[in-house]
């Protein structure tokens, strides 16, 4: 029904606020970053007042920085473990198990899983911190069961932040999959059952092919949400002990604000932004039918 091809004075004015906001606070910083990453800008010292152009120096340094290699690896591990495996599979398991359960069970389980997701990130992080710490609830339970507790945040920091992020983010996948599963035609499933297919085969050969597109979209979205996670890890382990759980956002924060090396921090931010842009582009393309 869009039959009007309007002049510039019809469409431009209403879009000006958006162009201004996004230009100043979104595109501006990214262009600024593109410039800063090639200087030696710092928080203090002579380089803070008058940054010099240093060419590819920051990126050359990044390439040989063992901390960056470590952070990239940990980010991959964190994203794969907590999002692709953890949230995605647990979300699907919950959605499948909750189908055709009675209303009360669905409501209670759904409420608890969603609650962890609705909480502000920092509150979720505090709750997890208390749960996993040396004096925490998890160890209290383990002790009553006759097992020995430990300070999980210190002895197994990656496992702690991965499980923490699964706890926090599973609701998103669960909600998406619940909606997708409710669209699956029941008659198809019944037909498969008549043909003698068990629950696993029905899921693998009937349900999964139907919801495949949803799974792909969900994987993109949770990957994008996970690579940028800062607050949860900052509260739980601060990237430590040492650099044992220092993912890219934590390394970026550490270099830029703790060490005051703004330019180098920006170069790391660019790595993060690059990974995000890649996944985001795939995601936007996958949804081209909607545009």
């Amino acid at each position: 029904m869009r039959r009007r091809r309007p002049g510039v004075f019809a469409w431009l004015p209403p879009m000006v606020p958006t162009f201004l906001l996004l230009g100043l606070f979104f595109i501006g910083p990214i262009l600024w970053a593109a410039y800063t990453a090639f200087t030696n800008a710092a928080l203090s010292g002579p380089a803070a007042r008058d940054p010099e152009f240093v060419g590819w120096e920051n990126f050359r340094r990044a390439l040989h920085d063992p901390n960056l290699a470590n952070a990239v690896w940990l980010t991959v591990l964190f994203t794969f473990g907590s999002a692709v495996i953890g949230q995605n599979c647990l979300g699907m398991l919950l959605a499948v198990l909750m189908q055709r359960r009675n209303q009360v069970i669905r409501a209670i389980v759904g409420m608890l899983v969603v609650a962890a997701w609705v909480l502000p990130e920092i509150v979720a992080a505090f709750a997890l911190y208390a749960f996993l710490s040396g004096d925490g609830t998890l160890n209290a339970v383990l002790t009553t069961l006759g097992m020995e507790g430990q300070n999980w945040l210190f002895t197994a920091p990656m496992l702690a932040i991965i499980l923490g992020n699964v706890w926090r983010g599973t609701a998103f996948s669960m909600l998406i999959y619940q909606a997708a599963l409710s669209d699956v035609d029941v008659e198809l499933l019944e037909a498969a059952q008549v043909d003698g297919a068990g629950p696993l085969r029905r899921f693998w050969h009937v349900v999964l092919p139907i919801v495949r597109r949803t799974v792909m979209t969900n994987l993109m979205l949770i990957t994008l949400q996970t690579i940028g996670v800062f607050t949860l890890i900052y509260v739980l382990t601060s990237g430590g002990p040492g650099t044992a759980s220092q993912t890219l956002p934590l390394l970026m924060y550490d270099r830029a604000f703790e060490f005051g090396e703004i330019a180098y921090g920006t170069a790391i931010a660019f790595v993060l932004l690059g990974v995000g842009a890649l996944f985001s582009a795939i995601y936007a393309r996958a949804l081209r039918a909607e545009v």
């Binding site: 910083p29 994008l224 940028g228 800062f230 932004l273 842009a277 985001s280 582009a281 936007a284």
Partner: peptide, 18 residues
């Protein structure tokens, strides 16, 4: 749509210096 996917964390260092 592309911009909705970008991690906000990544732009915070340049935003800070701006």
């Amino acid at each position: 749509l592309f911009a909705t996917g970008l991690p906000l964390t990544a732009v915070m260092v340049p935003v800070y210096s701006l």
